[in-house]
């Protein structure tokens, strides 16, 4: 067995496989299927300071090799998370990160402050890239000025590992990545979903209640790989890559492009145990290619 351990800032991951926010609930939903503690980490559902109902139904459209969603950050708020959900997560022996979002900088700060008090949450993923909310979300992640404003503001109140999740819906992701790094991000994760839409030709109507939504699944992987590669060339902080990872080979591609860890998202819906298969597959790859450590292939793309 190769060495699968990686570090993301202060986080020591037993393996480089995490789950993407919004696709893994709080981990508890997977207890019937798998031992969540075998993962390198989990990123729990997007959390905001105030409870959010999310968008109206329909929120999902199946597309070629992927799907659109427009959930809109439905969650019961940071206080509910801290009091009602967090205690149930203490049983897990893995890194639990909370995906933090907001409509205003003040909301991001308030949410991060609550999460900062939770001893067994070693980090947050700052979501400045949700495409499905009217205010905040992606709006913060598409200009250098707004990234600097929100990331540096949260940095002042959040003292553990802060990952910043970037949007792919931008013209120069390298430049935005550098802004996030300069503003205090300890790590960058990418990509969030791509703004997209689906149309019902028979009814001449959009399929989603919100008209547009976020595209995920294998359809987005080539875009994600390109953006991870660009960001890896632009910053020094470790990168967590994601976007359409369905199997271990996909994951390896992200490591080669420069990611130090990966997140699995949409694939969890099809196979709730896929993350464990990906961990095994990464180990097989290392053995097959005679690498002793996952760190030997990070950024190892030969160009």
């Amino acid at each position: 067995m190769g060495d699968l351990t990686v570090s993301i800032h202060n986080l020591k991951l037993k393996n480089p496989v995490l789950t993407a926010s919004g696709t893994f609930g709080y981990g508890l939903e997977y207890d019937d299927f798998m031992d969540v503690s075998l993962l390198g980490g989990i990123v729990v559902k997007g959390t905001t300071i105030h409870p959010r109902q999310g968008n109206d139904y329909p929120r999902m459209a199946e597309t070629a090799s992927g799907m659109l969603n427009s959930v809109g950050l439905q969650n019961k708020g940071a206080k509910y998370f801290a009091t009602d959900i967090y205690p149930n997560l203490l049983k897990y022996d893995t890194n639990i990160l909370v995906n933090v979002s907001g409509s205003t900088i003040e909301e991001y700060i308030a949410c991060a402050e609550i999460i900062n008090e939770l001893d067994h949450i070693p980090g947050i993923e700052l979501n400045i890239s949700c495409p499905n909310v009217k205010e905040g979300g992606m709006a913060f992640g598409t200009s250098c000025a707004s990234i600097e404003a929100v990331v540096s503001a949260v940095r002042k109140v959040y003292h553990k590992t802060m990952v910043v999740k970037l949007s792919p819906n931008v013209t120069d992701i390298g430049e935005l990545a550098r802004s996030a790094e300069a503003s205090g991000a300890d790590s960058l994760s990418l990509i969030n979903t791509l703004m997209a839409m689906a149309i019902d030709a028979e009814r001449r109507k959009p399929i989603l209640s919100t008209i547009t939504g976020g595209l995920s699944g294998p359809a987005v992987k080539p875009i994600a790989l390109r953006q991870v590669w660009e960001v890896a060339k632009s910053v020094k902080v470790p990168i967590i890559g994601m976007g359409g990872i369905m199997n271990a080979t996909d994951a390896i591609e992200f490591f080669l492009a420069g990611a130090s860890a990966i997140q699995v998202g949409t694939a969890n819906y099809l196979d709730p145990m896929i993350t464990l298969k990906i961990i095994d597959g990464i180990d097989d790859y290392l053995n097959r290619h005679k690498f002793s450590s996952i760190n030997d292939i990070i950024g190892g793309l030969q160009v």
């Binding site: 919004g22 893994f24 939903e29 997977y30 019937d32 329909p58």
Partner: peptide, 15 residues
């Protein structure tokens, strides 16, 4: 309702 996961994580099939 249409759903992506079937076990309560995607939050797409809400009523």
């Amino acid at each position: 309702n249409t759903m992506a996961c079937g076990f309560g994580v995607c939050l797409c099939c809400i009523t």
